[in-house]
């Protein structure tokens, strides 16, 4: 096993554990803090895949902005910070069986693929992914339209959020 694989396994275990804690902890503030750990674990995966820009973006946007915003939101609505109801209903075993089936099924079909055993190719020294990303976002032959559509989506979401949150007298 290479050192990278060992790091991957350790980080994966921590991330999965934190992800379970996000949905199982009763205190919303704790859940948000566990979520930060999950997001940090994913940033480490990006580093392992030598996607440095994504790792930085993950930390700045998801941890720095979104998770902090969530914690603020929870603290400003203190009344609902603690969940008092039951955490699962009588159908939990059906969901567990279904998830287990889905997991084994997906693992099985993935194991049938020839690329399942092969190791990742290291990235070329000369490659400049950040430059390619930047060009891809504005080149007419690249991802120009998805990029512009994303801004329409954000404007619509912004207007929608104001509509929902605005208190009418």
């Amino acid at each position: 096993m290479t050192p990278l694989q060992i790091i991957f396994i350790i980080v994966a275990v921590i991330t999965l554990f934190a992800a379970i804690k996000v949905v199982s902890s009763r205190n919303l503030v704790h859940a948000a803090l566990w979520l930060i750990l999950v997001l940090f674990g994913i940033a480490v995966f990006f580093v392992i895949l030598s996607a440095g820009f994504f790792a930085a973006a993950q930390v700045v946007i998801y941890i720095g902005a979104i998770a902090i915003l969530m914690i603020f939101t929870i603290m400003l609505t203190r009344r609902v910070a603690r969940d008092s109801g039951a955490q699962h209903n009588s159908n939990w075993w059906a969901a567990a069986v279904l998830s287990l089936l889905l997991f084994t099924g997906l693992s099985w079909i993935l194991s049938r693929w020839q690329g399942f055993q092969s190791t990742a190719q290291p990235m070329l020294e000369s490659a400049d992914p950040l430059r390619q990303l930047g060009e891809g976002l504005v080149a007419p032959g690249g991802y120009l339209i998805p990029f512009e559509v994303a801004s329409i989506l954000l404007v619509a979401a912004l207007i929608g959020a104001i509509t929902v949150a605005w208190e009418r007298k």
Binding site: I145, A150, G160
Partner: peptide, 18 residues
Amino acid sequence: DLIMLYLAIETTSIPLYI
């Protein structure tokens, strides 16, 4: 294109939720 398709689906859905 799958990326275009995914963004299109979200652009359809999110305003509809609201």
